[in-house]
Each structure stands twice: as C-alpha cells, then as structure tokens.
Nucleic acid binder design. Structure first.
Lengths: 236, 236
DNA sequence: CTGGCTAGTTGGTATAGACCAGAAGTTTGC
DNA sequence: GCAAACTTCTGGTCTATACCAACTAGCCAG
C-alpha cells in the first residue's frame, strides 16, 4: 500500500476502468465528476490519470476527454513490411492521410544520408491511423534522383512498394535510431493531443545495395500505441 | 510563439540551462528560486520542468533536485556486447550493483520461454550505472539446468560471458520486446526517482542454437538515458 | 577528528478556486 | 430539413498556499 493518495487513486481508477470499460465505450467520465466521486481535487485526480497515461492504459484526445487506450501495435522496425500490411496482419484497420508534399532541402536528412546540406528532397508528410485513432505522423525525405516524379504519382500507397516496383530500388542498408521524446507542439497538434505528450521518435536512413542513399524518414509515435518486437536468430 | 505560459517558460528554461550548465555543475537551482526568478508559481514552473524532463534534457533525483541529463547511451539490443563493453566503448564508466539473488518460479519468464508456470529459475536482480548515475534495473531469470551453480559463482561480471565461457551456451535466438512504461514504485525506488517516471521496458527471451530455453530478462531503463540504435544490411 | 543531533532547505503532495478556449449538444431561423 | 447561432460542458492552464518527509549542511559533543 503506497502512502501518496494519488497513487491509491491510480489503483482505484485502474480497477474502475477495468470494470466499466464496456459501459463507458472507451471514454472516461469528466474529470470534474471523477474528482467529485473520489472526493478530491481535479489537480490530484489529473495526477493519477497522468500515471495511467504514462503506463499506456489511457490517453487524452485534445480537449475531448480521457479514453481507454487500445492494445499496442506490434512493430518490427527491422523488417520492411509496409504499415498497411502489418496493421492488417494484426486484425486492425490502417489508414493514411497525406498532410503535405513538397521539394526542398532538409539538412538533418542530408546529414543522415551523407549528402550536402543543400541537397533537395522530395518531402512527404503523412499521418497514420490504426482503427481511426491517429497514432503517428511521419516525414519522408526521398532523394529526387532515385524517384524523380514521386510527388506527381504518390497518393497514399506503400512508399517502399513504389520504390521497389517502379524504380527497382533495393532497400538494403538501414540505420535505425529510436528515442523517447515529448511531442513538439506541431506534432502534437497533428495527432490531436496535448503538447508534451510522451512519444517515440524513430529515424531511419536507408541506402540501396550499392550504398547509394535512397531516403530518410522520421516517425513520431504516440508512446502508448506501439510495442517494438524483434525476432533474431543465428548469431553467437 | 506558443500561447501557454508554461511553454514559453519551457523555452526560457531551455536557454537558461544551455547557458549555465557549466556554472551549475549539472544541478538546477531550487524550484522556489526558479519560480521566483520567472515570477510564477512552483506548480507552473514544475509543469515547464516536466516538459524538459519528457524531452530527456533534465531529470530528477528523488527529493534531491533537478539535474541536467547526460548524453544518451547508444544501445543495440540486437547485438550481444555486454553492458560493460558498450558503455566503455562510448567513453563512459559502467558499474553494476547486485540487488538480490535467489531461486524461485516466475510465471512470466516461464511463459516467455515456453516452460511450465512452476518452473524455478535462478533470479538475479541488479542495478546498472553509467558514470555513477543509475540508469536501469534488470531482472534475469536463468534456467537452472543450463547454469546450475550460477548463484554461487556470480558476482557482477558479464552474465553472457559466463554462460558462453563456463557452460558453452550459444545464445542463438532472441525474442525482444520494447515498450514505454511508467516506472512502478518499486523500480522507481531502486533507481532513486519518483514513482511514475517515464521508462523503457525491454524484455528478452533467449534460446540456444537448439531452441532450448536459456534465460529471460527484463530491463527497466530511465527513458532519457538511452538511444536504441540498430544497423542492418543485406535484405530487400 | 568523528559521529550523532539539529535546524533549515527542498521536492513531493494536496487543497481551493478561477478563467479560457475548444468541443459537443441544443436551439433557432431560414 | 438543414445550416447557423448559441449555450453548456470539459479539459487546459494558472494562482496562491500549505504541510510533510527526505535530504543537506552545520553544529555540537565525545
């Protein structure tokens, strides 16, 4: 038994959520009504809710309230199954919205690919959903030489499928970095969450089988919506 | 420019920290003095500090104050270099403290390894440091048949080195899962941080080259102390 | 010089209340 | 029947204050 009241509250809320999940249809009652039910302040109540948010049990949708988080999506960044494929493989419904497309330089991408800072890229920014919940925003920077008319023909299909099918690229070498982050205001807004919400930042630099740079991409995931799973075999 | 004051505060603090990092020797001034300096309340000040904590720029040591976080440790969970090796390879100083050793069943480990729930394990719990900052606690569950007298001979060397050198095991197949978490009170206490601090949970199930279960381990990292880096080559 | 005690400082927790802007629901007007 | 306008609700932010427990540093006694 913990001493701090908000930690007791956390446990009580956890049980309350377990029992009423179905009845509430995924949405928790208003903070004010929960605070009243537990005879405490909204401040303390929110502290307890934030605990559960950190655990990934619940989340907030911007100014709309607290919601019970669906199961995490299994995600293996070392395989290159497309988003749509692995989401569907887990019985979930994927969706993608393209937010912007343009061609311009992006020094961080250039550096990650070993190109000069003023190297222009085809830039695609998109938001991805699982079962109608926005779970990540992603920016792709593709070297124009590798996919010249990309922005004319791209709608929302698999980018890797395009690169392989249309331009015959083999995405052979990948450098992947993952760090936890607090979502920047702009990313948070595009995911309909409060700024500072916990997220996971995944960056990939991709070269082909001749070490030529193909693309760089950066994903911002809601921290509670994925589980990184890797299966390995055959080393020492 | 953001509207919310605590977001402006966050930026001001960020700059303040940048400029005074050396002078403060890693430790921020007291919350009350910072609140006074910015003519605001401790509550709002803490909200801004929490933002920076989420970004991994600063962290708290339980009741001792706010500290500037050192650079993240690069960590490749797909390679099996020992903790000591890869910490030193990055010019940092590793340290390990053994917290407990015992032999008992642990159903989650059993399930991950495909063994019956009542299967006993040699259990080692240890805390790991980088440059004298505790960055993770780890629990290891080793199948006793694979390393019978483990608990008698183990001090704080590399476990994988032992398994390979003394018992000749080849750690061939690994199943790795990583999820963000909020540190449970017990883990938080062992890392000297407040309960609910953001963490990263890494679980590994390890089999040998004949698919025999060897060990299961679970690590709880402080979220701001690692960067997961994976380099891959040679697939499509 | 050492070890234990003490007083002050600091972060952790909690209360009570307030205002705002965005979301949702309802009514109104065409 | 539908769209626009309005009201209500709700989460997001902020102030001001208070108490406690743990940590720190300094004092004191041995």
């Amino acid at each position: 038994m913990s001493d701090a009241y908000y930690l007791q509250l956390t446990e009580q809320l956890r049980h309350l959520i377990d029992q009423n999940a179905a009845q509430w249809e995924g949405k928790l009652p208003a903070e004010r009504s929960l605070a009243e039910r537990f005879a405490t302040t909204r401040v303390t109540l929110r502290q307890a809710l934030s605990q559960l948010e950190g655990e990934g049990l619940i989340h907030r949708s911007n100014r709309r309230g607290w919601f019970i988080s669906p199961a995490r999506l299994d995600y293996d960044p070392t395989r290159d199954a497309g988003f749509n494929d692995y989401v569907r493989a887990q019985g979930r419904q994927p969706r993608t919205a393209v937010l912007s497309m343009e061609t311009r330089p992006h020094p961080p991408a250039a550096r990650a690919l070993g190109l000069p800072d003023d190297q222009p890229f085809h830039h695609i920014r998109r938001r991805r959903y699982v079962d109608d919940r926005a779970v990540l925003v992603e920016s792709l920077w593709v070297v124009p030489d590798r996919a010249p008319e990309l922005l004319e023909i791209y709608t929302d299909q698999s980018l890797w499928g395009l690169l392989r099918g249309r331009w015959g690229h083999h995405l052979a070498n990948r450098s992947i970095r993952m760090v936890s982050e607090a979502l920047a205001p702009i990313d948070a807004e595009e995911l309909f969450v409060a700024p500072g919400t916990a997220g996971l930042n995944i960056r990939r630099a991709i070269l082909d089988d001749q070490q030529r740079p193909i693309e760089f991409d950066e994903e911002h995931w809601l921290h509670d919506s994925l589980c990184i799973c890797v299966e390995l075999s055959g080393q020492t």
